[in-house]
Design a protein around this nucleic acid. Structure first.
Length: 831
DNA sequence: GGATACCCTTTACC
DNA sequence: ACGGGTAAAGGGTATCC
């Protein structure tokens, strides 16, 4: 039979020693089905020039490897004309029984005369399958297949053995069925507590979940269309329809499995769920000997090992939204932490009600009611967050062409690499290998190379500034000069030459071929698509167009870093260093042009230049920009960032030299942009940040320091009067490693130790909160106190180490000495 | 014994 | 293991005179 099919999840299994790929997705009717496809495992032997391919084939045709209960042999070979790192090569494609043994077969073949390299045995089987058979996630296909007995392998959904899978003409956007979940426990630490309750939240229990126009279905739903549950073995008097009460934790776990199975989502979404919810559920199920059979194969979740374990469920994509936000999204968020509450507030504008966990020790009946509704809210917010970022996940999945499960967990370097791998067939290019342990270490040992240039500003208060910046500067350089491992040339004749730069203490220049390689071609496509979709987004603003534009931007911006990343297949230290040499050259050249035209440069960082408008009109500035652009090579482009009516630049503390990466600007719409100041640093207390932010606002708005000075005096008075709230004095610093791993014990480490002593679970990644109180200790660390400790706050500390330093530099620009004001002496009037 | 140079650490900028 | 380099700054301690 033939049917429409959208692959969502990928898995593989062995049958009679051969590999099969199992795709789980939705058919045209919106039913969850499984498609089993065959796969022929293979890898390449790249031959040396002039090697006798036939002879090598003869030598390897009988190679086999025996493992456990399996024998893998060389089944057949193909002699092909391929490319490797851009060079034409003869290659032998070796087909074998089982991909798991590809590495060993490659090793068994060994260094036969004429073989230069062995490649592609180290690519995961699902990646190889998608790359070779072009059955890509979230795209629509027509599948011709035979229904398998018993769902193939005892699966709970219909299964089809694929005879043919072809792209469908239908390009309708796929809308997944999402179920969000969240648990509440008696102890954060796994193995210490039990699970009080499990909440579930989803929308659209209808079987057909996609709408013809490809838009998200949100809002105006009937409440009956919302699926919401809290399963618990605790009790409360007041009951709601969504509450389900169980006799025991074990029964509740069974209920959870039943609901998930019945709902049959494409995506099970949680927040921190790889590290908390799912392992906790599995742990408690093991204790109670309840089978957590969430998978379509009736099996319990499986945890893939890695830096962070990833919870995998057969046939359901378990998505930990935190992982995706952390890896891909966070750099564009304002949130200071990635807590569900804060991220949800920023992305979906939803504030969830807080529950006071201190109560847990002594819960009243109505407390339990509150706790249960709190738990439901967490799932509801998680669901809304999942809906919000689904367009981004989907776009990334379609661009990178890896399964949703991986796309939501991989970091940017892996995305860049997978994007390359899935597009190399177009260049007839064999994929290079991942560096081994020794090579990775060697790369890590190498020192840094010179980076970008930052202009030292002269402290002052300026009016009418212009800022130019290069659009995707690093990417545009890589594209314009073909900067990559495969296009690096020792001979500079007829090739692009870099400016001179220092690498490992030696002055050098490197060159890149003028003929574009796959790396720069792919990146130029990414940059082009970024431009195209950015336009499309501005013309038609919706989550899809925004996600598409954003995904290409992220990919373009991460590509430079990829070339300098030690784990990259296409690592090239020379390329990364050369890109930066070009960055410095074009920034300097452009600065010179701006100065030569009579302008005064105020500041610049990496790819931006700010200068005084000099009473020139905006039109004249734009014409000047056009002239600069006429001279820029390749796809390099200088853009107008904005015009600013005012700008404040300060000196470094205790110095008169201008501070880099610290400034405040006000644009033509009176919108203020603050960079680097304590205002935007989360490790300064609220009182300081609030005051400094107000001071900057008043100065930029009023054009003088008078009102700001008044506010500062008032704040100092409040502090001295002890009328400042402790909450405004809390200092928050992230604990980045285990307490025992610190060589220097700063205040936040002292605070973390205090927390441990008080029985609070402390782990790397946590934000440690403390305030500085009175005491005899000389070190700040001796006067660190946790919230709630009955100690007076240290006025001198907050004055001398927080308030004064944060505004001192700002007032210095106006020749006002804040220290004199604090000590009570008369303000020096220098004018 | 006080100033300060230096290292460790966190966070921000691009 | 899962882009890069540049920079400000505080706190703690070793070191200098």
């Amino acid at each position: 039979m033939e049917f429409e099919f959208v692959p969502v999840d990928y898995d593989y299994f062995d049958f009679e020693g051969r590999n099969y790929v199992r795709l789980v997705g939705r058919n045209g009717k919106g039913e969850k089905v499984c498609v089993v496809d065959s796969y022929e495992p293979n890898f390449y032997l790249v031959l040396k020039e002039g090697a006798d391919a036939e002879n090598i084939v003869d030598q390897i045709k009988d190679v086999s490897v025996e493992k456990a209960s399996r024998i893998t042999k060389v089944l057949r070979t193909e002699i092909l004309d391929k490319k490797f790192l851009g060079k034409n090569v003869k290659a032998i494609r070796v087909y074998i029984d089982n991909h798991k043994d590809a590495h060993e077969i490659a090793s068994a073949i060994g260094d036969i005369e004429g073989i230069d390299k062995r490649r592609e045995y180290d690519i995961p089987i699902i990646t190889k399958y998608i790359k070779e058979k072009k059955v890509e996630p979230l795209r629509r296909y027509r599948v011709r297949g035979r229904k398998m007995e018993d769902g193939g392998q005892g699966l709970s959904i219909p299964c089809f053995e694929a005879q043919e899978i072809l792209p469908s003409k239908n390009d309708e956007e796929f809308t997944p069925k999402i179920l969000a979940y969240d648990i509440e426990t008696s102890d954060r630490e796994l193995g210490k507590g039990d699970i009080f309750m499990i909440s579930l939240y989803g929308e659209g229990t209808r079987s057909e979940t996609s709408r013809g126009d490809g838009q998200q279905v949100t809002g105006d739903r009937e409440d009956s269309d919302i699926f919401k549950k809290v399963l618990t073995w605790k009790h409360c008097e007041k009951k709601e329809d969504y509450m389900e009460f169980y006799e025991s934790e074990a029964e509740m776990l069974k209920g959870f499995v039943k609901h998930v199975n019945e709902y049959s989502p494409d995506i099970l979404a949680g927040y921190f769920s790889d590290g908390f919810d799912l392992p906790y559920l599995k742990g408690r199920a093991d204790v109670h000997k309840v089978k957590l059979s969430l998978g379509i194969d009736g099996k319990k979740p499986n945890f893939t090992r890695g830096r962070i374990p990833s919870g995998k469920i057969a046939g359901i994509v378990h998505v930990d939204l935190y992982r995706f936000i952390d890896a891909v999204f966070s750099q564009y968020l304002q949130s200071e932490t990635l807590s569900l509450n804060e991220v949800a507030r920023e992305l979906v504008g939803e504030e969830k009600e807080d529950f006071d966990f201190v109560k847990l020790g002594n819960m009243s009946d109505s407390d339990w009611y509150d706790f249960i509704s709190y738990n439901l809210q967490d799932s509801a917010v998680t669901y809304k967050l999942a809906q919000k970022i689904w367009p981004d996940v989907a776009e990334f999945t379609k661009i990178i062409k890896e399964p949703v499960f991986d796309v939501t967990r991989d970091r940017m370097a892996t995305h860049v690499e997978n994007h390359i791998i899935h597009n190399l067939d177009r260049f007839n290019e064999i994929v290079d290998k991942r560096p081994g342990f020794a090579e990775t270490n060697e790369r890590k040992m190498k020192g840094k190379f010179e980076g970008a240039f930052v202009f030292e500003p002269k402290p002052g208060f300026y009016e009418d500034l212009v800022m130019f910046d290069f659009t995707s500067m690093h990417a545009s350089i890589i594209v314009s000069f073909n900067v990559s491992k495969a296009t690096l040339r020792s001979d500079c004749e007829g090739n692009h030459q870099t400016p001179e730069f220092v690498l490992d203490g030696e002055k050098t220049r490197v060159c890149f071929s003028k003929e574009a390689g796959f790396f720069s071609t792919l990146l130029s496509e990414v940059v082009d698509k970024r431009k195209k979709y950015k336009k499309e987004y501005f013309a038609n603003e919706n989550p899809m167009t925004k996600a598409r534009s954003n995904a290409y931007k992220l990919l373009a911006n991460a590509t430079f870093g990829y070339q300098g990343f030690f784990g990259a297949r296409y690592y090239s230290r020379e390329s990364a260093a050369a890109t930066l040499a070009f960055v410095r050259k074009y920034t300097h050249d452009t600065m010179n042009k701006i100065e030569d035209a009579g302008y005064t440069i105020i500041y610049g960082d990496t790819d931006s230049i700010a200068f005084l408008q000099n009473s020139k009109s905006k039109d004249e500035i734009m014409k000047f920009l056009g002239e600069i652009n006429d001279d820029l090579p390749g796809i390099m482009e200088l853009d107008l960032e904005d015009f600013y009516s005012k700008g404040l630049f300060v000196a470094k503390r205790g110095s008169t030299t201008g501070a880099k990466k610290k400034y405040a600007l006000m644009d033509s719409r009176d919108k203020i942009k603050i960079r680097g100041f304590e205002t935007v640093r989360r490790d300064w207390c609220k009182l300081t940040r609030g005051l400094q932010s107000e001071v900057l606002n008043l100065i930029l708005t009023d054009g003088n320091e008078k009102a700001a000075l008044k506010l500062t005096k008032e704040t100092i008075k409040r502090l001295k009067d002890r009328s400042v709230d402790f909450e405004d004095l809390m200092i928050r610093t992230q604990l980045k490693r285990e307490i025992s791993d610190y060589t220097a014990t700063g205040p936040h480490v002292v605070a973390a130790k205090k927390m441990v002593a008080a029985g609070v679970a402390v782990s790397p990644g946590m934000l440690i909160e403390y305030f500085v109180g009175e005491g005899s200790g000389k070190r700040v660390g001796d006067r660190v106190y946790l919230a709630g400790e009955r100690v007076k706050y240290d006025i001198d500390y907050y004055l001398g180490n927080q308030i004064v330093p944060s505004v001192e530099g700002i007032f210095n620009v106006f020749d006002v000495n804040v220290k004199d004001i604090v000590s009570g002496s008369k303000q020096q009037k220098l004018f």
